[in-house]
Write a protein that binds this DNA or RNA. Structure first.
Lengths: 197, 197
DNA sequence: GTCTATATTGCGATAGAC
DNA sequence: GTCTATCGCAATATAGAC
């Protein structure tokens, strides 16, 4: 095995395995076998199983933070929300295991939750709240709306759609073909839901 | 220990432990110690760790299915949706660990997912779809709406609010005090989002 | 039904050769 | 940097006494 392909192969093999069964559901032996790498390389490169898990999460959640770009865009508030929804869909298609780490850490937090996961998610939510508050102060939205509740509603609609897939895969087409329809649909409900009519 | 308090105590002790760390994150030794019961009682009453976990999930998801009542109510469609949101909030307050099992099984499914969790969640979603379709055929809703996407949006708003609590607890009051405001807020967005204007 | 004691397996980690 | 061999521990499960 050339150079530090070991490191790369271990992370690549660990991502779907940790995503499927969680930190405690996978053994380092299984990961090493799947990566085609010697067991002891996990300690050598990552200091142990938890270090490998942390490296996986760091990799996965770095992609989520690209959403920060929205903050610096010079577009109106509703467009920012559509960019957010679109960015989430793109991330989940590009990183098919990201949502699993996201919800797994929310539900059964490991030490990585406080250091990696929570800061990343919080940053995204704060950007949405800032955007909403700006539109709110410009009186774009109905004035009995709560900024945090409103942006959590939007985030909930798009995230839950992917989370619930194992239950609804027989009821609806969850493939990429329908992504544009989904985005339009969610933005449609949200826009009419919050805008002054 | 009197009679089969063993069984009851084991389930009661296991609920918060499995909810916090998942099936693989907890040992039967820890559960037995916490329940004040001998280790071997887990095999005696439940046939092993997975049997205990299945008993816990059966108990938790039976409560979710009480939502079925909505199906038989003679009220208009939007009222059914409000009843659903209200029932979810009530369930999560009454069963503070239910959502963890719900999302844990969606994210890192065990054998219980197919037998216990998926049927329960699917049943609830189907009831919502039926209700929406009825209102749809009565032309209550805008006609470019998709029934499944629409009810998943509503379910996403309320479920995500509870799921994201570990991140937003510093930003918003997640206590029961605000439940009515939350319900009104979500129903407000959803109603304006789907209704003909 | 409940206990103690133990069988057995699999775990994560590492010492030490190369 | 990579390997083999192994240590020490914790896991689930159960046999058998009471």
């Amino acid at each position: 095995m050339a150079e530090n392909d070991c490191r790369t192969n271990l992370i690549a093999a660990a991502i779907p395995m940790f995503a499927a069964k969680g930190l405690n559901g996978v053994s380092v032996r299984d990961i090493a076998r799947e990566a085609g790498v010697n067991l002891s390389m996990i300690s050598y490169y990552f200091g142990g199983k938890e270090g490998l898990y942390a490296a996986v999460l760091t990799d996965q959640f770095a992609s989520l933070l690209k959403i920060e770009d929205i903050d610096r865009m010079e577009v109106d508030t509703l467009q920012k929300f559509e960019m957010y929804v679109r960015a989430i869909v793109t991330r989940y298609r590009e990183y098919p295991y990201l949502l699993r780490f996201y919800t797994s850490e929310l539900t059964n937090p490991t030490p990585c939750f406080e250091t990696i996961v929570k800061p990343a998610i919080k940053r995204v939510i704060e950007i949405l709240i800032t955007a909403f508050s700006k539109g709110f102060s410009h009186q774009e939205f109905r004035d009995n709306l709560h900024p945090v509740d409103s942006v959590l509603s939007l985030a909930g609609m798009i995230n839950f759609y992917f989370l619930i897939e194992p239950v609804t895969e027989g009821l609806i087409d969850h493939s990429q073909n329908r992504d544009e329809e989904l985005i339009r649909h969610i933005m449609d409900i949200f826009t009419r839901g919050v805008l002054k009519s």
